[in-house]
Amino acid sequence: MVDVTNHELVPDHTVLDDEELEEVLQEYNIDKPDLPKIQRTDSALPKEAEVGDVIKITRDSRTTETAVVYRLVVK
């Protein structure tokens, strides 16, 4: 299998730890299920990611330098 994380269309995916997650949820004043989703089978997902984890995605943005978004891993 090719390593898709090197593809220029694929931004950085990292698993968020509990502390960071708490900060994010507080900052936006939302619950975990309100986040956008990412499937567990997604090719760009880090190997250690499990259902219920929140992934931090750092994109090269077209409008600012970088944009950070979060996705919840679902089945």
């Binding site: 898709v4 593809h7 694929v10 995916h13 990412i38 997604d42 090719s43 997902l45 995605i57 994109r59």
Partner: peptide, 9 residues
């Protein structure tokens, strides 16, 4: 093949 974020791009 590349995941949802690549699809978005």
């Amino acid at each position: 093949n590349l995941g949802i974020e690549a699809a978005r791009e």
